[in-house]
Amino acid sequence: MNQSLNRIAAMTARYYYILRSSWLRLLEIVYWPAMQMMVWGFLYTYLYQSRSAMADTAGLLLGAVLLWDVLFRGQLGFTFTFLEEIWSRNLANLMMSPLKPAELAASLMLMSLIRLLIGTIPVTLLTLLLFGFNIYALGPGLLVFFLNLVLTGWAIGLVVAGLVIRQGLGAESLAYSIMIVLLPLCCVYYPVEALPLWLHPVAWSLTPTYVFEGMRAMLIHGVFRTDLMIACLALNAVYLGIGFTTFVLLLQSARHKGGLLTMGE
């Protein structure tokens, strides 16, 4: 156990060294979410100050944008940290070391969390400062939303990392594009009722739907939907299990196919 923790710590230190080596990389983590928040923040201000029916939805919109960013950045942080190994042609060094797949996954998760906190905390503070929208007013419920979204991001990140190992850098673009599939289906900006009836089961099979429904219940009715969050956590446990199994199977498949040694060439 101690050795395992030591290896996870070694990998986390490795990713920390990369982050530390370039202030541009640090800036990039904050830059994108900050710019996105500016756009939505100004829209929020415009809607809030208008006297249209849309004024009531302004807070929902901004909350949804912030939480969607947690999901998106969580997955991106995981996958990009992994891609560093491919870009630097270091994967074979790791695969030949005593590092186990679960330890690699754990270190990627830890680093994704660190990147997420670096990117999210300044942006939420900026939102409060510039637009007066306080996401922290959601209280402890925010932590549950955050946790669920991060878990989903990791599950997807594991599958993408596995596909990159199996298929090579051709699968790299999935890191950016895979989350877009979820955007219309997990009801980020509208309730599930807005979808056609036949898409409801699909929407409820996706964990972010529970979070965004929960957020709306909280912002509109002031109610924390424990039932939704428990269902979401249970689903996330299943998806994380599937994600890790897929990662291990794709890694095993790559060992059959060959190419781990020359990955990144």
Binding site: R7, A10, M11, A13, Y17, S88
Partner: peptide, 26 residues
């Protein structure tokens, strides 16, 4: 092992690389 197909992370210093791999190997 050592292979020309594989590189050590270029952004890490020599000492950092040896530190990371030393910890991985316990």
């Amino acid at each position: 092992f050592e292979s020309p197909y594989v590189a050590l992370p270029g952004r890490l210093t020599v000492r950092e690389n040896l530190m990371v791999f030393g910890r991985l190997y316990g």
